[in-house]
Design a protein around this nucleic acid. Sequence first.
DNA 1: TATTTTTAATTGACTGCTCAATCAATAAAA
DNA 2: TTTTATTGATTGAGCAGTCAATTAAAAATA
Lengths: 194, 194
Amino acid sequence: MPKRGMQPIRRQELVIAAVEAIHERGLNGVTMGDIAKRAGVSPALAHHYFGSKDELLSATMRHLLGEFAFAARRRLVDAKDPRARVDAILEASFAPEQFSPAVTSAWLAFYMQSIHDKAAARLLAIYLKRLEANLRHDLRPLVGDGAPALARGIAAMIDGLWLHAALPTLHRSPGEALGILRDYVDGRLAVART
Amino acid sequence: MPKRGMQPIRRQELVIAAVEAIHERGLNGVTMGDIAKRAGVSPALAHHYFGSKDELLSATMRHLLGEFAFAARRRLVDAKDPRARVDAILEASFAPEQFSPAVTSAWLAFYMQSIHDKAAARLLAIYLKRLEANLRHDLRPLVGDGAPALARGIAAMIDGLWLHAALPTLHRSPGEALGILRDYVDGRLAVART
DNA sequence: TATTTTTAATTGACTGCTCAATCAATAAAA
DNA sequence: TTTTATTGATTGAGCAGTCAATTAAAAATA
């Protein structure tokens, strides 16, 4: 029963369904059928709107990157001093919207994809470079020359905590992750002040 | 040309080939053909010695876990005080044998597999629990009640640094990773002493 | 307003390919 | 002669991608 103007709605639904399907089956294990079923449409429709599986997965990755950028930007406008800006980025990384099991594991699946897929690697590199540049900028007044290394450490720890959070066996909470990250930053700031 | 006693040799060769093939194609993208070709044998032989693709990949995972356990144990025997023992674990994590691009990305592929594969999750959980227990034990005299959180933080950061090292676009070095980790530990120890 | 035409949404059936797994056949060592 | 190593050929399943057919809404026309 065709209602017109479905294109953007279906695309959105399929991308959301893709995130969940990736969580269940893994990035390469997932089929167009899995995703379409979850979105309540036929596999043919997914092809109709995205042209190929690659395109759908690529759109899904851009969706995740976009969501994170939005969450971070929203928190950064309220943060005035450097320390608050660093904390805004940490919080955005573990905000519930970003941090559902499905979102986390889809995100990590794209990390893995980037190891052997140039296109994915390019998108991810932009995100990571921007994240580190932001951290570096705000850390400079706090730890001076230690800023680049600390920025890399924070970025790595965020991803490591995500990785562990994605493993159901470990059942780690976002709050705990945030605490560990803040301890890390506090420790380094304390050393820098001496 | 059959020479007898090939079984253990072929199995070893196939496992090594699997690590490299996973690095190139990803865990789910890899085929028995890829692995067999790299090992210089026919796909049928890979099936002959492992029975199934799942079994070969599972053997590959156990191989990686075993190699790390060996590297860590070797370093731990020389380390006498707690701080040296912590450092032994950090060093083992970034030793060249452990840290080739192929080994790193195969390792991470198994992390991802564990998200939706119970058998893989069980193996990995054992490794992670043991790693954290070791860290906790050696950190206790250094930071007291802060030991559990710090152990989790170190374990997460190790994996985060591995993840970043596996991304070719970032080209991070093992030495840098080790430096960042040591800064983290030093910072927390400094805070604990005050 | 009533009728026809166009356009968008949607699917079932189909195609072709890739790949894991099987098996029977061969070859060499013991 | 038996045992082990090895492979080419084959099978069968699953899946991405295509296409023609169907339905209903919207637009155009009478």
